[in-house]
Protein backbone atom coordinates (compact mmCIF):
# COMPACT_ATOMS: atom_id res chain seq x y z
CA UNK A 1 0.00 0.00 0.00
CA UNK A 2 1.38 3.31 -0.99
CA UNK A 3 1.33 6.22 1.40
CA UNK A 4 0.80 8.59 -1.50
CA UNK A 5 -2.46 6.92 -2.43
CA UNK A 6 -3.82 7.03 1.08
CA UNK A 7 -2.86 10.61 1.74
CA UNK A 8 -4.15 11.69 -1.66
CA UNK A 9 -7.48 10.07 -0.93
CA UNK A 10 -7.65 11.67 2.49
CA UNK A 11 -6.70 14.97 1.00
CA UNK A 12 -9.28 14.67 -1.72
CA UNK A 13 -12.19 14.36 0.70
CA UNK A 14 -10.88 16.99 3.00
CA UNK A 15 -10.16 19.31 0.11
CA UNK A 16 -13.80 19.39 -0.87
CA UNK A 17 -14.69 20.16 2.69
CA UNK A 18 -12.10 22.95 2.83
CA UNK A 19 -13.21 24.49 -0.43
CA UNK A 20 -16.83 24.53 0.59
CA UNK A 21 -16.09 26.07 3.96
CA UNK A 22 -13.84 28.69 2.36
CA UNK A 23 -16.47 29.70 -0.10
CA UNK A 24 -19.27 29.68 2.47
CA UNK A 25 -17.61 32.63 4.21
CA UNK A 26 -17.52 34.85 1.17
CA UNK A 27 -17.44 34.66 -2.60
CA UNK A 28 -14.00 33.83 -3.89
CA UNK A 29 -12.37 33.44 -7.22
CA UNK A 30 -10.12 30.49 -8.00
CA UNK A 31 -6.82 32.13 -7.32
CA UNK A 32 -7.93 33.29 -3.88
CA UNK A 33 -9.03 29.76 -3.06
CA UNK A 34 -5.72 28.47 -4.31
CA UNK A 35 -3.71 30.92 -2.29
CA UNK A 36 -5.48 30.05 0.93
CA UNK A 37 -5.21 26.33 0.30
CA UNK A 38 -1.55 26.61 -0.58
CA UNK A 39 -0.86 28.65 2.53
CA UNK A 40 -2.50 25.94 4.60
CA UNK A 41 -0.47 23.34 2.68
CA UNK A 42 -3.61 21.60 1.53
CA UNK A 43 -2.43 21.69 -2.06
CA UNK A 44 0.69 20.45 -3.73
CA UNK A 45 -0.16 21.26 -7.31
CA UNK A 46 -2.76 23.72 -8.41
CA UNK A 47 -4.13 21.51 -11.12
CA UNK A 48 -5.91 19.40 -8.52
CA UNK A 49 -8.45 22.07 -7.72
CA UNK A 50 -9.99 22.55 -11.13
CA UNK A 51 -11.64 19.18 -11.52
CA UNK A 52 -12.84 19.48 -7.93
CA UNK A 53 -14.43 22.87 -8.45
CA UNK A 54 -16.09 21.73 -11.62
CA UNK A 55 -17.41 18.66 -9.89
CA UNK A 56 -18.79 20.63 -6.95
CA UNK A 57 -20.38 23.07 -9.34
CA UNK A 58 -21.89 20.24 -11.37
CA UNK A 59 -23.25 18.77 -8.16
CA UNK A 60 -25.01 22.08 -7.57
CA UNK A 61 -23.07 22.71 -4.41
CA UNK A 62 -21.34 25.71 -5.93
CA UNK A 63 -22.19 28.32 -8.48
CA UNK A 64 -20.14 31.01 -10.10
CA UNK A 65 -20.33 34.32 -11.83
CA UNK A 66 -17.83 36.26 -13.88
CA UNK A 67 -16.22 39.49 -12.80
CA UNK A 68 -13.91 41.69 -14.83
CA UNK A 69 -10.42 42.05 -13.51
CA UNK A 70 -8.21 45.11 -13.76
CA UNK A 71 -5.07 43.00 -14.08
CA UNK A 72 -5.75 40.07 -16.34
CA UNK A 73 -8.46 37.82 -17.59
CA UNK A 74 -11.97 37.92 -16.14
CA UNK A 75 -12.34 36.09 -12.88
CA UNK A 76 -14.66 33.28 -12.02
CA UNK A 77 -16.15 34.01 -8.60
CA UNK A 78 -17.57 31.03 -6.76
CA UNK A 79 -20.36 31.19 -4.23
CA UNK A 80 -22.06 28.46 -2.29
CA UNK A 81 -25.61 27.29 -3.00
CA UNK A 82 -28.17 26.39 -0.35
CA UNK A 83 -27.54 22.75 -1.20
CA UNK A 84 -23.90 23.49 -0.71
CA UNK A 85 -24.54 24.95 2.71
CA UNK A 86 -26.50 21.89 3.69
CA UNK A 87 -23.78 19.59 2.36
CA UNK A 88 -21.16 21.60 4.19
CA UNK A 89 -22.92 21.40 7.53
CA UNK A 90 -23.20 17.63 7.13
CA UNK A 91 -19.54 17.46 6.30
CA UNK A 92 -18.71 19.59 9.32
CA UNK A 93 -20.53 17.19 11.61
CA UNK A 94 -18.79 14.20 10.09
CA UNK A 95 -15.49 15.95 10.25
CA UNK A 96 -15.87 16.86 13.91
CA UNK A 97 -16.93 13.35 14.75
CA UNK A 98 -14.07 11.93 12.80
CA UNK A 99 -11.64 14.38 14.26
CA UNK A 100 -12.66 13.45 17.74
CA UNK A 101 -12.61 9.75 16.99
CA UNK A 102 -9.22 9.95 15.40
CA UNK A 103 -7.94 12.05 18.26
CA UNK A 104 -9.11 9.51 20.79
CA UNK A 105 -7.92 6.50 18.87
CA UNK A 106 -4.51 7.80 17.94
CA UNK A 107 -3.73 9.16 21.41
CA UNK A 108 -4.92 6.01 23.19
CA UNK A 109 -1.90 3.85 23.12
Amino acid sequence: MKIENTTAQMRKGILEFCILSLISGKDLYTTEILDTLKKGKMLVVEGTIYPLLTRLKNANLLQYHWEESTSGPPRKYYSITPEGEEFLSKLKTVWNELNEAVQIITTQK
Binding site: T30, T31, E46, Y50, P51, L53, R55, K57, S71, G72
Partner: peptide, 28 residues
Protein backbone atom coordinates in the same frame (compact mmCIF):
# COMPACT_ATOMS: atom_id res chain seq x y z
CA UNK B 1 -1.81 16.19 -22.32
CA UNK B 2 -4.34 17.67 -19.96
CA UNK B 3 -7.00 17.34 -22.57
CA UNK B 4 -6.36 13.67 -23.02
CA UNK B 5 -6.12 13.22 -19.26
CA UNK B 6 -9.56 14.75 -18.76
CA UNK B 7 -10.94 13.21 -21.89
CA UNK B 8 -13.53 11.18 -20.03
CA UNK B 9 -14.15 13.54 -17.18
CA UNK B 10 -17.44 15.28 -16.90
CA UNK B 11 -17.06 18.99 -17.53
CA UNK B 12 -13.77 18.53 -19.28
CA UNK B 13 -14.06 21.74 -21.26
CA UNK B 14 -14.75 23.79 -18.20
CA UNK B 15 -11.82 22.35 -16.33
CA UNK B 16 -9.52 23.05 -19.22
CA UNK B 17 -10.85 26.52 -19.58
CA UNK B 18 -10.28 27.18 -15.88
CA UNK B 19 -6.77 25.92 -16.13
CA UNK B 20 -6.13 28.09 -19.16
CA UNK B 21 -7.42 31.04 -17.25
CA UNK B 22 -5.12 30.25 -14.40
CA UNK B 23 -2.21 29.97 -16.77
CA UNK B 24 -3.11 33.34 -18.24
CA UNK B 25 -3.17 34.75 -14.75
CA UNK B 26 0.21 33.34 -13.94
CA UNK B 27 1.57 34.67 -17.22
CA UNK B 28 0.18 38.03 -16.36
Amino acid sequence: ELESAFKNTLGKDEILQDIETRIAELFQ
